[in-house]
């Protein structure tokens, strides 16, 4: 904001929101992690994951966000490809993409290193 000056805390939040919206319209937003707090995410926050009702505890916390989960939300990826009973949308690490997670020792830190897989 160049011409008006935000004075109180709420005005500061309005300014941050406007800057975010401007960056979005310019198309220069960075990729955000799934654990990015809802107010920093682009648009409304929807819980991610496929089986909201049957596997509570890692898709969404008791407030509908991801801040209070028992483990990082990025863990979804591994829950899907290792242990999920449902054929999940993750690479088949047994046959076609054995090294898919090779660069990703810790999903929480290294999720950007997960490669795209072209079947």
């Amino acid at each position: 904001m160049k011409r008006l000056k935000p004075i109180n805390q709420k005005a500061g939040r309005i300014e941050a929101y406007l800057e975010h919206e401007a960056a979005k319209s310019r198309g220069d937003l960075d990729v955000v992690g799934l654990r990015t707090p809802p107010h920093e995410q682009d648009g409304p926050h929807y819980p991610l994951g496929c089986s909201l009702q049957f596997s509570p505890g890692w898709e969404v916390d008791n407030r509908g966000g991801t801040a209070g989960l028992c483990q990082p939300v990025e863990r979804d990826i591994f829950d899907c490809h290792i242990s999920c009973f449902w054929p999940a949308h993750v690479p088949d690490q047994l046959n076609h993409a054995p090294d898919w997670t090779g660069q990703c020792a810790s999903a929480q830190k290294d999720w950007r290193k997960l490669d795209l897989i072209f079947p």
């Binding site: 008006l4 000056k5 004075i7 709420k10 309005i14």
Partner: peptide, 18 residues
């Protein structure tokens, strides 16, 4: 001059042009 925005309750300071 300041504006107290309703209903957000944000406060902004105007410059001369504002």
């Amino acid at each position: 001059r300041f504006l107290y925005m309703v209903p957000s309750a944000g406060i902004f300071r105007m410059d001369e042009c504002g």
